[in-house]
């Protein structure tokens, strides 16, 4: 496969983001307000318990969990990709891809990677400051092997998030307005992926159920691996389920595209 064209796409992605740098910057700045809210609410929670543990977390490890979610989300969560894809389809922009020797999924994946790369570079300074502020809460893994496993899991989480977003955006082939569907998915991701709170503070029967859903593997799982909350046999099972979801999401993304293109009428082309 000729990769040069994808390098070019990567560059386009970077430039796209730079055109709207203010938008980008403000988004990153406002993103830290909810983090402050989270720190305050958990500080109040732990003040009530008199410094006790909550679901296996002490105050320090709870805050460190949320710091890691911020870092991970900057690295892997698609921000505007699904909206761009949907509008490409709706407005007939994909016509130009159908006639070019460029795979649309590959194209979007490259753009996604370039957005994430730039986003990370820009937010790394504020994130580093926050990590510096809470430096005494940082707990690095005991085991050397945890590092590569957590990174592998994070990479798969990125894939799952992207393929799900991509598949949803493909709905634009069938329906005009995909935002309701996207927001329904967001709400599940928000509450069930570990963004709002670590999943293991919920009742065991519920986390047992969540273990089989993809949301767990979009954010919570790689962080739990890094914090060494999940070890041994459970770690292997988890990675297994995550790998399954990764390939399943990939296949669905491909399938949706193939089906969609067959239906496509090239409006506006």
């Amino acid at each position: 496969m000729n990769l040069t064209k994808y390098y070019a796409v990567f560059g386009i992605g970077l430039q796209n983001t730079f055109v709207y740098r203010w938008n980008f910057l403000l988004r990153s700045v406002f993103g830290f307000v909810p983090l402050a809210g989270t720190v305050f609410i958990w500080r109040a929670m732990f003040a009530e318990t008199g410094g006790g543990r909550i679901g296996g977390y002490e105050y320090r490890s709870m805050i460190f969990y949320f710091l890691l979610t911020i870092l991970a989300e900057n690295l892997i969560t698609p921000t505007e990709d699904e909206w761009q894809i949907a509008s490409d389809i709706r407005e007939g922009q994909i016509n130009s891809f159908l006639t070019k020797p460029l795979n649309y999924l590959g194209y979007r994946l490259t753009l996604f990677l370039s957005y994430r790369a730039l986003y990370t570079v820009v937010t790394i300074l504020p994130i580093a400051l926050i990590f510096g502020w809470f430096h005494s809460f940082i707990q690095l893994p005991q085991h050397v092997l945890t590092w590569p496993l957590a990174i592998l899991s994070l990479a798969m989480a990125a894939g799952i998030q992207f393929f799900i977003a991509y598949s949803l955006a493909m709905l634009a082939f069938w329906i005009l307005e995909i935002s309701t569907v996207v927001f329904i998915l967001y709400s599940f991701e928000y509450f069930l992926s570990g963004h709002l709170f670590p999943l293991d503070i919920m009742p065991t029967w519920f986390t047992g159920l969540l273990q089989w859903l993809p949301f767990t593997y979009e954010l919570y799982f790689p962080i739990a691996v890094f914090l060494e909350k999940i070890t041994g046999r459970n770690l292997l099972i988890g990675l297994g389920i995550q790998t399954l979801w990764f390939f399943l999401a990939f296949l669905i993304a491909k399938l949706m595209w193939n089906r969609g293109v067959r239906r496509y009428q090239a409006v506006g082309g």
Partner: peptide
């Protein structure tokens, strides 16, 4: 001034994210 201001809409949601917490927790 900022041509594409969609990020500002996220700003709204992020700001009001803390509106649902009890006031005394903030310092």
């Amino acid at each position: 001034w900022i041509v594409r201001a969609q990020g500002l809409i996220y700003g709204y949601y992020n700001l009001f994210n803390i509106a649902r917490y009890p006031e005394p927790i903030f310092r």
